[in-house]
Simulated scan of single mutants.
Amino acid sequence: MKTAHDLVAIAKSSIKEVALADAAQAIQGADLLLDVREADEYANGHIPGAIHTSRGLLEFKLSNDPNLSARDLKIVLYCKNSGRAALASKSLHEMGYMHVQSIAGGFDAWAQAGNPIAKPEPIVFE
């Protein structure tokens, strides 16, 4: 029986992971930067320009949005430390997306390297 770690290792063997040192350039060249973490993780900080789509709904959201149906979109994905993004990348490849990359080390590596982090402004009710 395979574990979650086994599935991530299998996914990583068949996807393109971009090194952290090359992540900013990959993001700049992407049509879409997707944060596949959970909503609370995204709200606590994310890579500037990232759109939130949790891993559990990714395939459904891409399938149901005509603006995201082009299989030649350049997509960069990330999660906390690259496991969920690897699984998401593999899934998108299986859906026919041709240019999908996952950031090695994920958001944790991005933040630890001192790269910019965006945080939504809290809503204040008066």
Rank of each mutant, 00 (worst) to 15 (best):
M1F: 08
K2Q: 12
K2W: 09
K2N: 11
K2M: 11
D6L: 07
D6R: 02
V8H: 07
V8K: 09
A9M: 12
A9Y: 04
A9R: 15
I10A: 15
K12H: 10
S13E: 14
S14A: 13
K16N: 12
K16W: 01
E17T: 07
E17L: 15
E17H: 08
V18T: 11
V18P: 03
A19W: 02
L20E: 08
L20Q: 07
A21R: 09
A21S: 13
D22V: 01
D22T: 06
A26L: 07
A26F: 04
A26N: 08
I27K: 06
I27D: 11
G29I: 09
D31S: 13
L32H: 05
L33F: 07
L34H: 00
V36N: 08
V36A: 08
E38N: 06
E38Q: 14
A39R: 15
D40R: 11
Y42S: 00
G45C: 05
H46Y: 12
H46Q: 12
A50Y: 06
A50W: 02
H52Q: 13
H52S: 15
T53K: 11
S54M: 08
S54W: 05
R55C: 02
R55H: 14
L57A: 13
L58V: 09
L58Q: 09
E59N: 11
E59M: 07
E59Q: 14
F60D: 03
F60E: 02
K61H: 12
K61G: 02
K61L: 14
L62Q: 00
L62V: 10
L62Y: 00
L62A: 03
S63A: 15
S63C: 01
S63Y: 07
D65A: 12
D65C: 07
D65Y: 04
P66Y: 06
P66W: 07
N67H: 13
L68T: 01
S69D: 10
R71N: 09
R71C: 01
R71L: 14
D72N: 15
I75W: 04
I75G: 06
I75L: 07
V76N: 01
V76F: 06
L77I: 09
Y78P: 00
N81T: 14
G83R: 01
R84N: 08
A86C: 05
L87T: 01
L87K: 03
L87G: 06
K90F: 11
S91N: 08
S91M: 13
L92I: 05
L92G: 01
H93I: 11
M95S: 08
G96W: 03
Y97W: 09
Y97G: 09
V100I: 10
I103R: 04
I103K: 00
A104T: 13
A104C: 08
A104H: 11
A104Q: 13
G106F: 05
G106K: 00
G106C: 00
G106M: 02
F107A: 03
F107S: 02
F107T: 07
D108C: 02
D108W: 05
W110C: 04
W110I: 07
A111G: 03
A111T: 10
Q112N: 14
Q112R: 15
A113S: 14
G114C: 07
G114K: 08
G114F: 04
K119D: 00
P120R: 11
P120S: 13
E121I: 12
I123N: 06
I123Y: 11
I123G: 03
V124Q: 05
V124E: 04
